[in-house]
Design a protein around this nucleic acid. Structure first.
Length: 202
DNA sequence: TGGGCGATTGTCT
DNA sequence: GACAATCGCCCAA
């Protein structure tokens, strides 16, 4: 296998550094889309208040507790799918949310999957947009990224990594106490920072 | 068994 | 800048 699972180990910063610049390839009946990961967000096990694994293992997040190098997908807001790379070791439930990427293969196919025609940089700018453009669905949860229709090639290598507070995470998990959002500075495909908007108090 | 809320996005003002 | 769309998951009772 080409996927070296030993690279997917904590601490989060190093894992994110490895994933940034890596290439995710997705095969579909209608073609192949490959994208270079430009932005991720780390979730670090059951001790992380922003993680789905915070409250322990459930049916939904079971994949995160498994072997690293697998795909964890989840459905949110009644309409969006997001994808994570499970990071080890087994039982710890750490993962990296794929927040943005640059399409490097299958640009036409990626465009056709998104209704509104936006700029190329917008195609996979945002976690839910990325899954649509790449052709990843909920059914892909648990898939092994070493082989199969979805593959991750680590070690793209990036000259510089920027870090900051996570986006959209409610509660304690979104504070500066957990600066676990990582991106390639200056890259046009990185999503704009938007802090979690608290519920209206009326 | 019921109700609140979410690792978001697109559209409207 | 503000808010609606929309449904599965999780906690509390």
């Amino acid at each position: 296998m080409s996927l070296d699972r030993s690279l997917l180990l904590p601490p989060s910063f190093e894992v994110a550094s490895v994933i940034l610049g890596s290439v995710l390839t997705v095969d579909s009946p209608d073609g192949t889309v490959a994208l270079r990961i430009t932005e991720v967000e780390a979730y670090h096990g059951s001790g992380d208040p922003g993680s789905h694994a915070f409250r322990g293992k459930t049916n939904r997040n079971a994949v995160m507790f498994g072997e690293p190098g697998h795909l964890y997908t989840y459905f949110t807001y009644g309409m969006h799918t997001c994808a994570n790379v499970v990071c080890g070791p087994e039982g710890q439930a750490s993962g990296c949310l794929l927040r943005a990427g640059e399409i490097i293969e299958g640009l036409e196919l990626a465009r056709s999957r998104r209704d509104t025609s936006r700029s190329d940089a917008d195609l996979a700018r945002g976690p839910a947009r990325l899954t649509v453009a790449a052709g990843i669905t909920l059914a892909d949860g648990g898939a092994d990224l070493a082989s199969g229709r979805i593959r991750l090639e680590l070690g793209g290598g990036v000259p510089e990594v920027a870090t900051g507070p996570r986006t959209g995470v409610s509660g304690l998990g979104g504070t500066e106490e957990f600066p676990w959002r990582f991106w390639i500075p200056g890259d046009p495909t990185v999503s704009p920072y938007k802090a979690h908007s608290p519920k209206r108090h009326s």
